[in-house]
Write a protein that binds this DNA or RNA. Sequence first.
DNA 1: TGTTTGACGGACA
DNA 2: CTGTCCGCCAAAC
Length: 101
Amino acid sequence: MTESLTASQDRIWQIVHQIPVGKVATYGQIANLAGMPSHARLVGRVLSRLPPDTRLPWHRVVNAQGKITNPTRQRQQQRLAEEGIILIHGRVSLRLYGWDY
DNA sequence: TGTTTGACGGACA
DNA sequence: CTGTCCGCCAAAC
């Protein structure tokens, strides 16, 4: 049974919305929590299509290496800094800031 | 209709 | 540590 893209998109939004302030989650983690293992790319694609004025905390999502792969990484880094999350050597420490669901 | 492209990730050298 | 390869799949060409 196939599932509509909007349905999975809704769940992805729902999960991202739950990431606590001051914490970060990985694309793969979001995919898993949304019930779609191995679909990290889908998460990235969905986030890339968010409207500019979205209220969703998309900046709290980084890749499995803790690196920012977002085209607007400057803005994402700024937003993370505002929450106390600093990048060391270009990456976020998942050990310190990783979201334990 | 076939191929390439990504806001990815894990395995491996 | 870096780089390569492969699985994944909707969207753009």
